Computed example of a mutant assay.
Amino acid sequence: MAFRPSALSPRNAVIAMRLVWFTLLCVLACAFRSNAQTVAELRLRAETIVSSDVLTLGQIAEIHAADEMNRARLASASLGYAPAVGAAREIGRVDVLRAIIAAGFRAEEVRFSGPASSLVRRAAQKLDEQLLRAAVEQAVLTELQAAGATARLVRLDLPPHVDIPTGQIEVRVAANGVRDPFTPFPLTAEVRVDGRTVRRLSLTAQVEAFAPVLVAARDLAIGRRLREEDATVEVRRLTRPVTSYLRETKQLRGMAASRLIVRGETFTIDALHAETVIRPGDQVRIEGASDRVRVAVMGEARAAGRIGDRITVRNAQSGALLQAVVVDEGVVRVRF
């Protein structure tokens, strides 16, 4: 039955109108009180992609507040760590409520809207294969190229794709301990983003290199003392470390063949041995040098020596005994 004030007595009609106004005031008061308690309105996003390591409430929700300071406090409220690249994390309202309380707000001061949770993914970028290859080349080819060799990678096994967090990329490759780069060998690449290591990759590489080396100009018998005319220089493919090869004809001085060396064969250190080029009593040329003066006198060796050895010699003019380094057959050198 509808309420009709005209059906009541004047007194009852006044009372009824007062009750209506009282009820309306109560409703308005409650509404006013509720609005006074609301500090901010928060609307969760259904899905969010982030690029930082740590999640904040402002990254996954739209926050509206009359007071900018309150809005900033809520926006910076921590939600823990972001998921790894390729993974996802679901942030529910319970997680958000904990963050709000940790930020110093009461639950009833924030009004929620939107979905019940937000799915968070990590922003990613693909590691450029050329960047990875360049880092490997820098690590494994630099020494060969510095020695005059022409070198290149003939094999580099890379993962099909590598996703990493967004940011400034740096790749570090350590080639220490690689004994034979001319057969497949393992490498470890460290991928850093903004100065922090995010991935370590296991790689397999192989190198091909060519360099000018000494080659036998004729067959050389075991024990033969070598001369510079016994070798020529040719560019050959390297099959062992470049330091194993002889590169200049002056390196043959004082050396002899440890085994038969056939014409066209490369000279390697393990095929030669140093011979004694000065014996006690041999007449030697003593070369002396300082920063400004160079002199040469004759003398006598008092000990045997190979090139590079330090021996005692006697100056034939003054009779003084000197310590000198053997530099060639019949030649020693002293430093003033």
Rank of each mutant, 00 (worst) to 15 (best):
M1S: 08
F3Y: 11
S6V: 11
C26F: 13
A29N: 07
A29V: 15
R33N: 03
E41M: 04
L42D: 11
L44W: 08
R45S: 15
I49Q: 08
V50L: 09
D53E: 06
V54A: 09
G58W: 00
A61V: 05
I63L: 08
R71C: 06
R71S: 10
S76Q: 13
A77V: 08
A87V: 02
L97D: 14
L97E: 15
R106P: 00
A107T: 06
E109D: 11
F112K: 04
G114K: 01
G114M: 07
A116R: 10
A116V: 15
S118P: 08
S118Y: 03
R121H: 09
R122Q: 15
A123Q: 10
Q130P: 00
L131G: 07
R133C: 03
A139N: 11
A139Q: 09
L141Q: 11
E143H: 12
T150Y: 06
P159V: 12
P160E: 13
P160L: 14
H161P: 02
D163T: 01
G167S: 06
I169R: 06
A174H: 07
A175E: 12
N176Y: 05
N176A: 15
D180P: 00
F185Y: 07
F185C: 02
T188M: 13
R200A: 14
L203F: 11
T204G: 06
A211T: 14
V213E: 05
V215Q: 04
V215R: 05
I222E: 13
R224W: 10
T232A: 10
T239P: 00
L246K: 02
R247F: 10
R247C: 01
T249W: 12
R253H: 14
G254A: 06
A256R: 06
A257C: 14
L260S: 05
R263E: 14
E265C: 04
T268Y: 01
T268A: 08
I269D: 08
V277C: 08
I286L: 15
D291W: 05
D291V: 09
R292I: 09
V295M: 11
A296H: 03
A296R: 11
V297S: 05
M298C: 00
G299N: 04
A304R: 09
A304F: 07
A304D: 14
G305P: 05
R310K: 11
I311L: 04
T312S: 13
R314L: 14
Q317E: 14
Q317S: 13
L322G: 02
V331S: 02
V332Q: 09
